[in-house]
Design a protein around this nucleic acid. Structure first.
Lengths: 194, 194
DNA sequence: CGACACATGTAACACGTTACATGATTTG
DNA sequence: CAAATCATGTAACGTGTTACATGTGTCG
């Protein structure tokens, strides 16, 4: 949903053609998450199908411009007005760690140590690189915002993994991993209620 | 990729039937990210198609068991051995904030304030709830690990959004938002190189 | 000329997600 | 009995992602 909404938000500034959209997206998000061009055209087709943009004419250079519609504008406004829903997606790392800690036969401590090291390395790499590479003004601001976000997330991850490692060290595997449950219809956690 | 791998990791403990897999996944991930049952059967089909599991016979209760194959075991081992790739996905919040900060006409300060408030609320809610509800032993451990991860992430998000808000307050919109670029083939960021 | 960036597009696929249909069994 | 849970499955869809085909223009 992120790419789709982003393209729409950019188109809210005025008609754009495909390649231009990628450039705009890239410079406005600091170049993290590079976007495959093919996806732009794909997404534009779907946006048109849904009535959020319309395909305009081709200009003298052969550029095919797309323009946002009223419905599209409404969608953008809604996106910017509502807060994003969190935690949106299953976090692969969290899921993996949780499973590793509870599945017998998995060396959770080793696994966590590995992830911890990897996280620390990512953090170092992030800190080493200058956020505002060659950018100026607003583009530099965007790059810095994104960069700071990535750093904050990496820091949190490192701290969390450290705590997990400590926790696991206290519990021997035999008291932490648990085999598959036998059928136990009512026992165990009751059904989730809203 | 997270669900698929998780189911495979559970099946590595022994044959399971669909409903059982959901229960195992749920209790081993602390009940965050509840999993739709339909998805289990879906995923099992795809895993079988890829030769990572095989569909076994039906037992006396009508339960259809699936068993992992050697290829499946190799896949699980690889998952547990390699560190997850990060930052994996485009972070919707980061993308949204970055775009809001650079697109003219978007009240980025208001938007960030809203997200900041929402993030603080999420953090409060997380802190209010007891991680290990009614769980015991290993299941409680899993729930706590996941819970701590969510808290750490929420804390990082709150701190980051606070910094972003401060940053935006220093820059008036006129110096931060930037209109769509005119065609500038060579100027601007050079093409990404590996 | 040859390489490369610019530019548009198509086709296929992966994973995740939900809605729905169906039936057996349990339990208040 | 009725409602809820257990259980299996199907069909459809959404976004994201990649690989590929194709052509123009530019520059060393």
């Amino acid at each position: 949903m992120s790419v789709r909404r982003s393209l729409l938000a950019i188109l809210d500034q005025g008609p754009c053609y495909g390649y231009q959209l990628r450039a705009e997206f890239d410079r406005r998000t600091g170049g993290a998450w590079p976007l495959n061009v093919g996806q732009i055209y794909n997404t534009l087709e779907r946006l048109e199908r849904d009535g959020l943009v319309v395909k305009g004419d081709t200009d003298e250079h052969g550029h095919v411009y797309y323009a946002i519609t009223d419905a599209g504008r409404a969608d953008v406004r809604a996106w910017f007005e509502e807060a994003v829903s969190r935690p949106a997606a299953r976090d692969e790392l969290a899921v993996k760690i949780a499973l590793a800690a509870t599945l017998p036969g998995v060396e959770a401590d080793v696994l966590v140590a590995g992830e911890h090291a990897a996280a620390r390395e990512r953090l170092s790499a992030l800190r080493a690189q200058d956020a505002a590479d060659d950018a100026y003004g607003a583009e530099a601001l965007a790059a810095e915002i994104v960069h700071e976000g990535l750093v904050a997330q990496a820091e949190a991850e490192v701290a969390w993994l450290g705590r997990v490692a400590a926790r696991l060290a206290q519990h021997p595997e035999s008291t932490r991993a648990v085999a598959l449950s036998e059928r136990r219809p009512k026992r165990g956690r009751p059904a989730r209620v809203a």
